[in-house]
Design a protein around this nucleic acid. Structure first.
Lengths: 348, 348
DNA sequence: CAGCTTGGACCCCCTCGCAGC
DNA sequence: CGCTGCGAGGGGGTCCAAGCT
């Protein structure tokens, strides 16, 4: 009796080949095919070869839906993020993607558009329903929504800080970075340092501002009024115009590089030179920040490390669900000195 | 007889509730639960309410793996991309995400790190195996790998051009943008326009270069040698230093805004003013390009539209598999005039 | 009979076709 | 005809028993 045409193979033609089809072609049972597909050891080499070549002939790919159904795991990590257009988020995402891929997971990404609680909630619902083994949430604002919660007991890791510490988180050490930036300017002899903050609803922005404030206090420097922008060059420019008009501003720490860029343009238009008249420090260290005019002194974030740690933490939670997850991991940023800072103008 | 504790509910405790659990609690069969979950009309309102409240009590979420298994569809779109860190890719991705979400699909994203054929192939394999209903490939280079093919008959759309037209594609009209940039500079009285190209293996970069070349020819302008960079400000700076050394360079069209940024810095360092001595045009229109010094004249790409069209095309293919897919869609970019271009220096 | 490979039964959860009231 | 339930897959994994050496 010919075995090459089992019932499964005969059933339908343009349907992806199943284990049963491979089994029929190889003249074995589908369980043996399963063993081969999963690289089990207890298969006769000769049998394995027959199965493997049958797989190749048929172009067999295992059906992840069926697999997920029986295993109860999906080999998929969910990522919720605002605005991948922001460099920081994009780089964190890229790093997460790399780390996930190395671990054999793929990524289900949802970019939340509106910063409304409902939008976030829907994204999470979609993701957990779409079957993920764990969730990375990039950007803490998302968690500020009081309604945010993950119903289904899916492990969660937060990148970029979780103000209420409800979840394990991985984050750049914002405080260390902001303090380094502020002290650097103070050390250059500036009487004080102004701060151009990020959006007020960003936890990262708030922590940078707080650390700037603390550094000023610690140094006994006066604390100038604080203004919040929204991470864009446009808002850096808008607020920058006000700062440029004040002659007592000689040093500004901007909460990110784009804000710094807008600020520099505003200063330039007002006839105030950077760094001769005003020193500027950014935050992020975008690849292009070294090519701004002048090249920007800034705080470099190690997004790669943040992404890698997120995935590592998540996998740990997934693989040993019992254990209480590690608390927070802080990744230390690094001050990169370039040409946008200089000693305070002597005068006065 | 109490129905609230059916066999299914008793079987295991910390397993997500299934239809059977809901059915047991509501005192109906699981098929009825299915009907309610899928919003079918043929359910008695009173029954539906009972089921709905049972769902709420149990926190029921439907199991997408099982659903996908029976339906043969996953409600997931795969995205393959190089480097989300590149603004263009990130913005396309964001747009795709939005469009997909609106259509009720989620996104399985793979960022390919190395530009090797193997890496790409593996990404595609992972994605098709991970069960996607369709595939968007961002950045044409991926397709240049001769080995690239999608085995499993999954619909594919290419964003950013498909040189060999093997797949339907959606793309910015690179030629129109590059021609507009070149003509703009020519119209300002420059004898000719130099081009600072993107990476040679990028189809978009090649098309921009070709259109620049054609525009010069059409205008009877001499064609200066062409140099290829790699999209980064760093390479713009490197090549920019060479260009800055040549006094006959008075107008440069850079293949993207980051290249233009590096170029401007190089010109600045060489003491050549932009736009008084040299005019520069970029490509992309990043949000921060308006805040460069000087604000950059550039070609604005409508990434939003590209993403939206990709998803639309893909869904069309998915929903009516028979039809031959539409060929290519071109999205027209727009020249944005700012302060980095000026009439050719009179002299000579 | 120990130790190996192999196959049969059953379950995962949901949806569809059909039958029953 | 309206609403509901039964049974059968859909593809693959685990448990356990059967067959072989």
């Amino acid at each position: 009796m010919e075995k090459t045409e089992g019932p499964a193979a005969a059933r339908g033609r343009n349907r992806p080949p199943s284990q049963a089809d491979v089994a029929a072609l190889a003249g074995v049972s589908s369980q043996t095919v399963s063993r081969v597909a999963n690289n089990r050891s207890n298969v006769e080499p000769e049998t394995r070869d027959r199965v493997l070549s049958a797989m190749r002939i048929l172009g067999y790919q295992r059906n992840s839906a069926a697999r997920a159904l029986t295993l109860g795991r999906f080999q998929v990590l969910g990522v919720v993020t605002f605005d991948v257009t922001a460099q920081g988020n994009a780089r964190t995402l890229a790093a997460i993607s790399r780390a996930a891929q190395r671990a054999g997971y793929s990524l289900n990404v949802v970019c939340v558009e509106d910063q409304t609680e409902e939008a976030v909630q829907q994204a999470v619902r979609q993701l957990t329903e779409q079957a993920v083994d764990g969730l990375v949430v990039i950007e803490a604002q998302i968690l500020d929504r009081p309604g945010f919660n993950v119903s289904s007991g899916v492990p969660v890791v937060v990148a970029d800080g979780d103000p209420e510490r409800r979840f394990p988180s991985v984050d750049t050490d914002q405080a260390a970075g902001a303090a380094a930036a502020t002290r650097h300017l103070l050390d250059l002899g500036h009487r004080t340092v102004w701060h151009l903050g990020g959006p007020q609803d960003s936890y990262a922005a708030r922590r940078r501002a707080a650390a700037w404030h603390a550094a000023l206090k610690a140094a006994g420097a006066p604390v100038p009024p604080l203004r919040f922008g929204d991470w864009t060059a446009a808002s850096g420019y808008g607020i920058g115009r006000e700062l440029a008009a004040r002659p007592d501003v000689t040093a500004v720490f901007a909460a990110n590089d784009h804000l710094a860029l807008g600020l520099v343009r505003a200063l330039h238009e007002a006839g105030r030179r950077v760094p001769e008249d005003v020193s500027v420090v950014g935050f992020d260290d975008l690849p292009e920040s070294a090519y701004y005019l002048p090249p920007l002194t800034t705080v470099r974030q190690d997004f790669e490390e943040v992404g890698r740690e997120c995935v590592a933490q998540l996998l740990r939670q997934i693989e040993s669900p019992g254990e209480s997850p590690t608390a927070s991991v802080a990744v230390t940023p690094e001050l990169v000195l370039r040409a946008s800072t200089a000693p305070a103008p002597t005068a006065r």
